[in-house]
Write a protein that binds this DNA or RNA. Structure first.
Length: 287
DNA sequence: AAGAGGCCCTGATAGC
DNA sequence: TGCTATCAGGGCCTCT
């Protein structure tokens, strides 16, 4: 679920709450996430002071003052909850998938600070934690990733050259983190709608104008989603308990058989499974 | 070496 | 009410 915009909303909220806080205790209730939590995880975190919460692509980067730290990937269903220790019922919440009430099941990791604790919940366990010991090691973790849409290196030259002779369809390229990082299944459909490009169009057949639109709308759609506070199919609240609003702006995602929202277009939104992921598009205006 | 497909896992929902 | 099937926002691994 969480794509770049949702992770960015979590980052902003989390940074405010845990910045300059010292980790007093770490509880790993279930280390069997997507990847097994490192045996030295607790030791690595213990007594560390948090300098900053950063983000790259869909990954949160928790930086400590000594330049070590760890990264969190939320997978499909990972959520972060901050709970006031003195009053267990008052939860300041960062939740994508669940209601603001702290779930009882699947709370796999707890990180305690002096007055609150951080709880990682993940029913499907597709998310994971990974530690790093220095900035070079961190950089290496992301070395095989393509640029974010906002990056200077995500430019017309890069895009046009990347697509040359590529048989793969454009939808799969938007999901391919080696090409561009941070886009997931919802925003891939939304970006292609704005571009008026059919998700099944082969990359090698994209025109220069197509590339220009991909360049433009990859940025715009994600930026707008961040501005709207992210989106989710289920309840999504940021740390202040405000609901994300971007789902109201979906043009095609989960709008199967509804009328195309482009003005003067009489098309109908279709759903098609492409590479095992559902794609939504207007069968009339997306060519 | 690019590209397709299987798979990791739980839970919500639909259909019978 | 209770079973089974299908689907879900990610991405790594294997096979061709």
């Amino acid at each position: 679920m969480p794509e770049l915009p949702e992770v960015e909303i979590v980052r902003q909220s989390l940074d405010k709450k845990v910045k300059d806080k010292i980790i007093l205790k770490v509880l790993v209730k279930n280390r069997n996430l997507r990847f097994k939590i490192h045996s030295g995880f607790k030791r690595h975190l213990n007594k560390k002071k948090i300098k900053k919460v950063d983000r790259f692509s869909k990954y949160l980067i928790i930086r400590f003052e000594d330049n070590t730290g760890f990264i969190i990937h939320l997978g499909m269903t990972g959520t972060i909850h901050l709970s006031n220790i003195k009053n267990k019922n008052s939860l300041t919440n960062t939740s994508f998938y669940h209601s603001p009430i702290l779930p009882k099941k699947h709370n796999h990791v707890e990180i305690q600070f002096s007055k609150m604790k951080f709880i990682y919940n993940d029913p499907r366990r597709f998310g994971y934690f990974s530690i790093f010991h220095n900035p070079i090691e961190l950089k290496k973790k992301f070395s095989h990733f393509g640029p974010e849409p906002f990056s200077k290196s995500f430019n017309m030259n890069y895009i046009c050259n990347y697509f040359k002779k590529k048989e793969k369809n454009i939808k799969n390229f938007l999901l391919d983190q080696k090409f561009v990082s941070g886009i997931g299944n919802i925003y891939a459909s939304e970006i292609l709608f704005k571009c008026k490009i059919h998700p099944n169009k082969k990359a090698k057949n994209l025109t220069k104008y197509d590339c220009k639109k991909i360049f433009k709308y990859s940025k715009l759609v994600l930026k707008k989603a961040i501005k709207k506070g992210g989106s989710s199919i289920r309840d999504f609240q940021n740390i202040n308990g405000e609901t994300g609003n971007f789902q109201k702006n979906f043009n095609v995602y989960q709008r199967e058989n509804l009328k195309c929202l482009k003005s003067k277009c009489n098309g109908i939104v279709k759903k098609k499974i492409i590479s095992n992921r559902s794609s939504f598009f207007c069968n009339y205006c997306q060519k």
